[in-house]
Design a protein around this nucleic acid. Structure first.
Length: 493
RNA sequence: GGUCUCGUGGCCGAGAGGCUUAGGCAAAGGUCUGCAAAACCUUCUACAGCGGUUCGAAUCCGCUCGAGACCUCCA
């Protein structure tokens, strides 16, 4: 690969050069959602971030296998009830109906945000056999013990003999003793408070349960990711990602399970996305400081003054680095909406520009430089904000070329092609943005051409009332007319 | 309470020891325009506070204040 990527590895706590295990192929695993309710907006940020990483790696030539799971069993609530089962009980649905319902909703939302589908999207319940095998391996290696039909991971023994526990999250096993609460389920069956269940015996009324060597039960949360990443990416793969709230215990325990079962570190690079805040505070349903994606789109929320389209929301997210917290505010969204439109307009103008057929233009070097710089910024830990900044530096050039303030004699067509490739490549192929206003409607184009030509005649005759009537009427219909020296153009508001 | 992260101009957000006025939005002035919008040009120079290290700090260290994450379900 020509591009050298630097990325921040959570486990080493520093930026490293990305060197894939296999030259041209990259394996990436991202912890997907637990499908027990509508997808959270913060979730969307995480998956959009990894979608862009996936797309960028492909864009620069890697073959990427991107695995993102669906967790549909084993993820328990505080009181020990399975999240899926609680959803089923409350909505009077079969557990798998709950799973299907919210999986569908999640997929629909990912499509709305124009993300690509992962290469493989495995489900926890589809990999019970693999999980049972992994539990057995861990027991065989002496890092787990059975108690009452449940199996627990022996964190103390693992920590003492491998020294691996706590590396990712920076935790020390001794401290976990004092910190661990004692009101968790089956605390008495554990040898150590920080031990965690990898197989749980099911109560008789529990619906989702499977036969195993230890009991009729279900796998522990964390185990599904260990089992499925191993199955589809191997025991050691390139990138493991997720939200940073999963660092502990989820990812820490995942690492323990992988090392405990096969002796290998699952991932070379750990990437963590940061939280999305609303008005400077954590989103929280209980105090009303929350907004759903659909409310954001419709504007039906006290936190925003209007609706924002999915691409505006996505653009807003791209203006911040994935590893930094991002504060969602109405003002911020409004700024993003304008910026996004400006970028899209420039992109449209860029498609139509034609420069010199031969030779070099005086603007060539600068424009190519900015376009290349935008791509290079992405190699620095996938910095979408820096890449966007470079693209925005190109915007005045593009607009000036478009309306004649800069001469097309000063730029070569080869240079424009080069710029187009990077500009459009980044915006559409890597960021996965799309022009929501792009009318693929020939009838509208035809009508607008007709209307604008009538107005042009009125203007030529200095018939301002007619000219303004047309412009005002169109404005009322949501269409903005822009006059320039060589005619008028239009765009949706 | 413990572990960790962060605090940048009117707002959002990059940067991470000495040239970046990063970028977006807003605001002001100007060019263009029948008017307007758009576009273009120009202006607005900040790094929570207090100490310290250094020739030099927004960038390193300490303390204070504030925010957030994890420890307990969460991306």
């Amino acid at each position: 690969m020509e591009k050298k990527i630097q990325l921040y590895n959570s486990i080493s706590r520093q930026k490293e050069e990305f060197k894939p295990i296999h030259d041209t192929h990259v394996g990436m695993y991202v912890c997907g959602p637990t499908v027990y309710s509508d997808v959270h907006l913060g979730n969307c940020r995480t998956f959009i971030s990894f979608d862009i990483i996936f797309r960028y790696l492909k864009f620069i030539g890697y073959k990427v296998r991107y695995v993102r799971n669906i967790t549909d069993v084993g993820h328990l609530l505080d009181d020990g009830e399975d999240r899926i089962l609680k959803g089923a009980r409350l909505q009077q649905l079969e557990p798998m109906e709950v799973v299907q319902k919210y999986t569908n909703g999640f997929h629909a939302m990912m499509r709305i945000f124009n993300t690509e589908e992962p290469s493989i999207e495995p489900r926890a319940t589809g990999h019970i056999v693999e999980q049972i095998e992994m539990v057995q391996q861990i027991i065989d290696n002496g890092y787990a013990y059975e108690a009452n039909g449940s199996v627990y991971f022996d964190t103390l023994k693992f920590a003492q003999s491998t020294g691996e526990y706590g590396k990712l999250s920076g935790r020390v096993i001794e401290e976990l003793v004092a910190e661990s609460r004692d009101n968790l389920k089956n605390q008495d069956e554990k040898r150590h408070p920080s031990d965690f269940a990898i197989w749980m015996k099911a109560a008789p009324e529990h619906i989702m349960k499977w036969n195993s060597p230890w009991s009729i039960g279900f796998p522990g949360w964390h185990l599904e990711c260990s089992a499925m990443s191993t199955k589809y990416l191997g025991t050691h793969f390139d990138i493991h990602g997720g939200g940073n709230d999963l660092k502990f215990p989820h990812h820490e325990n995942e690492i323990a399970q992988n090392i405990g079962s096969c002796g290998c570190h699952p991932a070379k690079y750990w990437l963590h996305t940061n939280m999305l805040l609303l008005n400077g505070k954590k989103m929280s349903k209980s105090d009303g400081n929350t907004i759903s994606p659909l409310e954001l789109f419709s504007g039906d929320s006290v936190h925003i003054s209007q609706g924002y389209s999915p691409m505006v929301v996505k653009f807003f997210m791209l203006q911040a680095h994935y590893s930094a917290p991002l504060d969602l505010t109405d003002e911020g969204l409004q700024a993003a909406e304008k910026g996004f439109k400006r970028l899209m307009e420039a992109s449209k103008i860029l498609s139509k520009l034609q420069g010199l057929n031969a030779g070099k233009g005086s603007l060539d070097e600068e424009m190519i430089g900015l376009a290349d710089a935008a791509l290079t910024e992405m190699s620095d830990d996938f910095s979408t904000p820096k890449a966007l900044a470079k693209l925005f530096e190109l915007v005045p050039k593009i607009n000036s070329l478009g309306d004649g303030k800069l001469s097309l004699n000063d730029v070569s067509d080869t240079a424009l092609d080069h710029v187009r490739q990077s500009f459009h490549g980044l915006i559409f192929d890597v960021f996965g943005l799309k022009d929501e206003q792009a009318g693929e409607n020939n009838a509208v184009d035809g009508l607008m051409n007709l209307i604008l030509s009538i107005r042009q005649k009125a203007r030529a005759n200095k018939d301002w009332p007619t000219s303004d009537e047309i412009r005002d009427g169109l404005k009322a219909a949501g269409i903005v007319v822009k006059d320039s020296k060589d005619g008028s153009s239009w765009t949706y508001e």
